[in-house]
């Protein structure tokens, strides 16, 4: 039997701990790491400094820390991005996206993926930064671990139409980059994918063995039947 209203006091204890702790431990300010990757002399000084130079707003260096989740990116395994892309253009994320900021065009022909299996691939994969609400639902629903959250946040641009629509080639990031920005999450994801793959192969193997055994038994039975037939004759 729980105490009436005990949950409220428990929650208040949590917030009190955070309130007091924020005055004593510096590590708690995880959300206010100001531009930790850049020396102070190179910080943008005025609005005109954004973006500093061509291509920097989508560069790999603009990350905060491994808790930060900002905007989705597409993953590819080691190799040429389009040869090893994990996305198979199944369009589940496009349908599930609450603000509908993803636009996918499926390819007409199949192409070999990293495992050497012919698959469809996205001919177009656009995400609108101004519409995305960073809810991470696309990551949750993706059955191929192809879309994960990036942590880069310097997405400001002087072009409010084309600049805010991030194209497939800008979204594509390697699995190594993912390991760099979210080491814990990437490690667990890789582990799980490997386990899934192993389980799948074991199942396949078992099924093959079963089929083989069944075929052998059938052959043996047929042989036995033949023999008994011969006996009776």
């Amino acid at each position: 039997m729980s105490i009436l209203g005990g949950g409220i006091f428990k929650g208040m204890a949590v917030t009190l701990r955070n309130f007091v702790g924020s005055y004593f431990s510096k590590e708690r300010f995880i959300t206010t790491n100001e531009y930790s990757w850049r020396p102070e002399s190179e910080l943008p000084q005025s609005i005109g400094d954004y973006p500093k130079e061509e291509g920097e707003q989508l560069s790999d260096t603009t990350t905060v820390n491994h808790y930060s989740r900002n905007f989705p990116m597409l993953l590819h395994d080691t190799g040429e991005p389009m040869d090893t892309i994990r996305c198979v253009a199944c369009q589940i994320c496009e349908r599930e996206c609450p603000p509908q900021c993803i636009y996918i065009e499926k390819s007409t022909e199949k192409k070999e993926n990293a495992d050497g299996k012919p698959q469809f691939y996205p001919a177009k994969f656009d995400i609108d930064v101004s519409v995305c609400m960073s809810c991470q639902i696309c990551v949750e629903v993706c059955p191929f671990d192809a879309i994960v959250m990036n942590s880069q946040f310097e997405l400001s641009t002087p072009d409010r139409f084309g600049g805010l629509l991030v194209r497939r080639d800008d979204l594509l990031k390697s699995n190594d980059y993912y390991h760099k920005i979210h080491p814990q999450e990437a490690a667990t994801r890789d582990e799980r994918m490997a386990a899934d793959k192993a389980a799948k192969e074991a199942k396949k193997k078992a099924a093959a063995e079963k089929a083989k055994a069944a075929a052998e038994a059938k052959a043996a039975a047929a042989e036995a039947a033949n023999e008994s037939k011969e006996d009776t004759e």
Binding site: T15, N18, F19, S22, Y23, F29, T32
Partner: peptide, 10 residues
């Protein structure tokens, strides 16, 4: 201030 501190902000 209090809400910020509760959420580990300044």
């Amino acid at each position: 201030k209090a809400l910020a501190r509760i959420q580990n902000r300044i």
